[in-house]
Amino acid sequence: MKILILCTGNSCRSQMAHGWLQSFDKSLEVHSAGTEPAPRVNSKAVKVMAEAGIDISNHYPKNVDRYLNEEWDYVITVCGGANESCPTFSGKVNHRIHIGFDDPSHATGTDEFIWSEFIRVRDEIKRGFYQFYINEIY
Score class of each variant (00 low, 15 high):
Met1Asn: 01
Lys2Gln: 15
Ile3Leu: 11
Leu4Ser: 05
Ile5Met: 03
Ile5Tyr: 08
Leu6Thr: 09
Cys7Met: 02
Thr8Asp: 03
Gly9Asp: 02
Gly9Met: 00
Gly9Ile: 01
Cys12Asp: 00
Arg13Trp: 07
Arg13Glu: 01
Met16Glu: 07
His18Lys: 11
His18Glu: 13
Gly19Thr: 04
Gly19Ser: 12
Trp20Ile: 12
Trp20Tyr: 15
Trp20Thr: 00
Ser23Tyr: 03
Ser23Gln: 10
Ser23Thr: 10
Leu28Thr: 08
Glu29Cys: 06
Glu29Asn: 11
Val30Gln: 10
Val30Leu: 06
Val30Gly: 09
His31Lys: 15
Ser32Lys: 06
Ala33Asn: 10
Gly34Met: 04
Thr35Arg: 10
Glu36Thr: 14
Glu36Asn: 14
Ala38Thr: 02
Ala38Pro: 10
Arg40Leu: 14
Arg40Asn: 15
Arg40Gly: 09
Arg40His: 15
Val41Gly: 08
Val41Leu: 09
Asn42Ile: 00
Asn42Lys: 08
Ser43Asp: 14
Lys44Pro: 05
Lys44Ser: 06
Ala45Cys: 03
Val46Leu: 06
Val46Ser: 02
Lys47Cys: 13
Met49His: 00
Met49Asn: 12
Met49Thr: 11
Met49Ile: 13
Ala50Ile: 06
Ala50His: 10
Glu51Lys: 15
Ala52Val: 03
Gly53Gln: 07
Ile54His: 01
Asp55Glu: 09
Ile56Gly: 07
Ile56His: 01
Ser57Thr: 09
Ser57Ala: 12
Tyr60Leu: 11
Tyr60Pro: 03
Tyr60Ser: 13
Pro61Thr: 06
Pro61Cys: 01
Pro61Gln: 10
Lys62Tyr: 13
Asn63Asp: 15
Asp65Thr: 10
Asp65Glu: 14
Arg66Trp: 14
Leu68Asp: 05
Leu68Ala: 08
Leu68Thr: 13
Asn69Ser: 14
Asn69Trp: 06
Glu70Ser: 13
Asp73Phe: 07
Asp73Cys: 06
Thr77Ala: 12
Gly81Ala: 10
Ala82His: 05
Asn83Pro: 01
Asn83Cys: 09
Ser85Phe: 14
Cys86Gly: 05
Pro87Met: 04
Thr88Lys: 11
Phe89Met: 08
Ser90Glu: 14
Asn94Glu: 14
Arg96Tyr: 08
Ile97Pro: 06
His98Ile: 11
Gly100Asn: 12
Gly100Cys: 07
Phe101Ser: 06
Phe101Arg: 04
Asp102Phe: 05
Asp103Phe: 04
Pro104Tyr: 09
Pro104His: 04
Pro104Lys: 07
Pro104Arg: 01
Ser105Tyr: 07
His106Tyr: 08
His106Asn: 07
His106Phe: 02
Ala107Val: 11
Phe113Pro: 06
Phe113Lys: 04
Phe113Glu: 10
Phe113Met: 09
Ile114Thr: 01
Ser116Asp: 15
Ser116Ala: 14
Ser116Arg: 08
Glu117Tyr: 02
Phe118Gln: 02
Ile119Met: 04
Arg120Trp: 00
Arg120Tyr: 03
Arg120Val: 00
Arg120Gly: 00
Val121Arg: 01
Asp123Glu: 03
Glu124Ile: 00
Glu124Thr: 00
Ile125Met: 04
Lys126Glu: 14
Arg127Tyr: 04
Arg127Lys: 15
Gly128Leu: 09
Phe129Ala: 00
Phe129Arg: 00
Gln131Tyr: 06
Phe132Tyr: 07
Tyr133Lys: 04
Ile134Asp: 09
Ile134Tyr: 10
Ile134Gln: 11
Ile134Arg: 09
Asn135Phe: 12
Glu136His: 13
Tyr138Ser: 04
Tyr138Val: 09
